[in-house]
Design a protein around this nucleic acid. Structure first.
Lengths: 115, 115
DNA sequence: CCGCTCCCCTTGTGTCACGAGGGAAGACGT
DNA sequence: ACGTCTTCCCTCGTGACACAAGGGGAGCGG
């Protein structure tokens, strides 16, 4: 059905990850779970999407990692928001909203009757 | 300021173009103008972004083109929405809204106090 | 005839979501 | 002891695409 959703994630995924970590450290797997649940299973993040994104954010110093043990007694890498990450979450969310509002306004205007 | 807007256009540009044409034929330049104006100059579409997108949509039979003369007496290619294009505008807008709502819900939840 | 605006186009570059792969290690049943 | 399942990590190749930087032609006003 919705094979068009593709690409929409661009520019939003990073924000979702940062938001997932805004309540405290989480391991990668948990971030994906949070996103799925927080969006009512509308957004499903594959591992091939998630992990590169985490590494990217870490390289950009938006998040920091530390090995630990999960609640299921598994080896897990816990990510935590850095100060820059928190700032980026805020400014990013703001401009995301600006973008969405602008686009929604353009897309939402009255639809002319079809033929 | 907002150098972060980048990438957000992905998956939205096509819809904006289709929407621009939903009121009648327009040439490429006019499409860009419409988008800029309809979004309150929040979204500025470069020509290197616009024309490939138009060609893409035409290749996908969402729009059709025809050479003509602009209101400024210039040679111009006019684009018109096809039936498929109109259908795609509708379904695309719906799933765009679903995506945005889901993301907004996830991003909008209460922000924990910083440190 | 010079510059400006309008209007068209292409190529190269980088980013990135995604699918498909691979692996280790705890838990659990038999 | 030994599959199998789940949790958790990772990488690589591919395709899509926004964007900047180029190039051009043609009307128009000075």
């Amino acid at each position: 059905m919705n094979d068009l959703d593709v690409n929409l994630l661009r520019g939003t995924l990073d924000l979702l990850i940062l938001k997932a970590l805004s309540w405290g450290p989480r391991h990668g797997y948990g971030v994906a779970e949070w996103i799925e649940q927080a969006t009512g299973t509308t957004l499903l993040i594959g591992e091939g999407t998630l992990y590169p994104a985490l590494h990217r954010l870490e390289r950009q110093r938006a998040i920091e990692s530390e090995w630990g043990v999960s609640e299921n007694n598994r080896r897990a890498k816990y990510y935590r928001l850095s100060r820059e990450g928190r700032a980026r979450l805020q400014s990013g969310t703001t401009s995301w909203q600006r973008f969405v509002e602008a686009a929604a306004r353009a897309l939402g205007a009255g639809v002319p009757q079809p033929a």
